[in-house]
C-alpha cells in the first residue's frame, strides 16, 4: 500500500548513517545520578531527622516539577489544577492506611493508581477545553474534588485527618523509611520520564510540544498522547501528595488542595527550564534553597520568590538549564545521525 516503502532511486542512495542516542552523555548522566542517589541514600545515617523531613519536601518538589513539565512542557497542557491529584494521593494514603487497613507503604502506590483512575475519565471533561479555559477548568476540577472530599466523614470532612498507621514504627526508623521511599519515588519519576521521552511516545510528545497541528498531520495521535500524559502526571502528583502526607502525618483539605501547589510547580519548571528533563530538577533545588533560606522573612519570602521568577524569565527566558544552550545533556533524548561530510 505505502509506495514509498520501496527503496527509492532518487538522488543519493547512500545507506542510512548510524543513529546515535547520546550514548556517552547518557552514561555520564547515569553515573552522576547513581552517585547523587548513593550520597542521598546514605544521608539518614549522617543528618538529623529534621533535615530528612526537609529533604522529603525537596523530593516532592522534584516529582511535582517533573510532572508539570511533562504536562505543560511536552504535552502543552497548562494545568493549574494538579492539586486535585496531590490531594487525592494524600487523602488516598490516609483512607487506605487508616480506614481500609492497607500497609501504609503499599498505600502510597495504590493511592497513585487511584489518581490515574480518576484522571482517565476526568480528561474527557478537561480536554473539551483548550488554552486558558483548560487551565481554569483544571482549577475548577480541583476545587470540586476538594469540596467532595470535605464531605467524607471517614477522612475527617472539613478538618482533615492524621496518619497514625506508622505509629508502630519508632520515629527514628519511620522518618528514615519515609525519606528512602520519597527518594526512591523521585528517582523512579525522573528516570521514568527520561525513559518515556527516549521512547517512541517521547518522540511524539516532543513533536506535539513544537507544533501539535504539524504533529497530527504527520500521523501523531495527539489527543491520545496527551491523555496518556495527563493520566501519568496525575499518578505522579498523587505520589507527591502521598509523600507529603507520609512526611507530615497530617492531611487537611485547605493545604493539600491548595492552589499554591500550582504556583510552585509553574515556578519550579519555568525557573529550571521548561521542556527539558534536567530543568525541573534544577528548579526544584532552587525553590527549595530559596524556601529554606528565606523562611524567616515571612510574607516577604513570596516577594523574593516572585522577584527571582521575574529576573530569571527576563535574563534566562529558557530557564536556568537553558543557559547551557544544549551543550550539556545529562538525559539525552534526541537522535543524531553520524554524517560524514
Amino acid at each position: 500500500m505505502t509506495q514509498l516503502d520501496a527503496p527509492r532511486t532518487a538522488a543519493g542512495t547512500g545507506s542510512v548513517p548510524r543513529v546515535r542516542r547520546g550514548g556517552r552523555a547518557a552514561w555520564a548522566g547515569g553515573a552522576g545520578l547513581v552517585a547523587v542517589v548513593a550520597v542521598l541514600g546514605y544521608l539518614p545515617y549522617l543528618v538529623s531527622r529534621g533535615t530528612q523531613v526537609d529533604l522529603v519536601g525537596l523530593f516532592a518538589l522534584v516529582v511535582l516539577g517533573t510532572m508539570w513539565n511533562l504536562l505543560a512542557g511536552y504535552g502543552g497542557m497548562v494545568s493549574i489544577g494538579q492539586q486535585a491529584y496531590i490531594g487525592i494521593g494524600g487523602y488516598g494514603l490516609v483512607y487506605l492506611a487508616e480506614t481500609v487497613g492497607v500497609d501504609p507503604f503499599l498505600s502510597v502506590p495504590v493511592a497513585a493508581l487511584v489518581c490515574a483512575l480518576v484522571a482517565w475519565p476526568t480528561s474527557y471533561l478537561a480536554f473539551r477545553l483548550s488554552g486558558g479555559y483548560f487551565a481554569i477548568g483544571t482549577w475548577v476540577i480541583a476545587e470540586v474534588v476538594r469540596l467532595l472530599v470535605t464531605q467524607v466523614d471517614a477522612v475527617g470532612a472539613g478538618s482533615g485527618a492524621s496518619l497514625t498507621a506508622f505509629s508502630g514504627i519508632e520515629p527514628l526508623y519511620r522518618i528514615a523509611f519515609v525519606y528512602w521511599m520519597s527518594l526512591g519515588i523521585a528517582v523512579v519519576v525522573v528516570v521514568g520520564v527520561y525513559l518515556l521521552m527516549r521512547s517512541r511516545l517521547g518522540l511524539a510528545l516532543t513533536a506535539i510540544r513544537d507544533d501539535p497541528t504539524a504533529a497530527s498531520s504527520a500521523g501523531v495521535r495527539v489527543t491520545r498522547a496527551k491523555r496518556l500524559v495527563y493520566v501519568v502526571a496525575a499518578a505522579g502528583c498523587g505520589l507527591a501528595g502521598a509523600m507529603i502526607v507520609a512526611n507530615t502525618l497530617r492531611v487537611q483539605p485547605g493545604s493539600i488542595f491548595s492552589v499554591d501547589y500550582a504556583a510552585i510547580m509553574v515556578f519550579v519548571v519555568v525557573i529550571g527550564g521548561i521542556g527539558t528533563i534536567e530543568g525541573p530538577v534544577l528548579g526544584a533545588l532552587v525553590f527549595y534553597l530559596l524556601q529554606d533560606s528565606l523562611a524567616d522573612l515571612g510574607n516577604w519570602y513570596l516577594v523574593v520568590v516572585g522577584g527571582v521568577a521575574i529576573a530569571v524569565t527576563l535574563l534566562a527566558p529558557r530557564g536556568l538549564w537553558g543557559l547551557t544552550r544544549g551543550r550539556v545533556e545529562l538525559f539525552p533524548t534526541g537522535y543524531r545521525v553520524a554524517v560524514r561530510r
Binding site: 543513529v19 518522540l203 511524539a204 516532543t206 513533536a207 510540544r209 513544537d210 507544533d211 497541528t213 504539524a214 504533529a215 504527520a218 501523531v220 521542556g275 534526541g334 537522535y335 543524531r336 545521525v337
Partner: peptide, 14 residues
Amino acid sequence: RPFGGMTVFENALV
C-alpha cells in the same frame, strides 16, 4: 511548521 526544537532528521523521523 517545523518541529523547531527537534533536528531535521528527528522531524522526518516523527
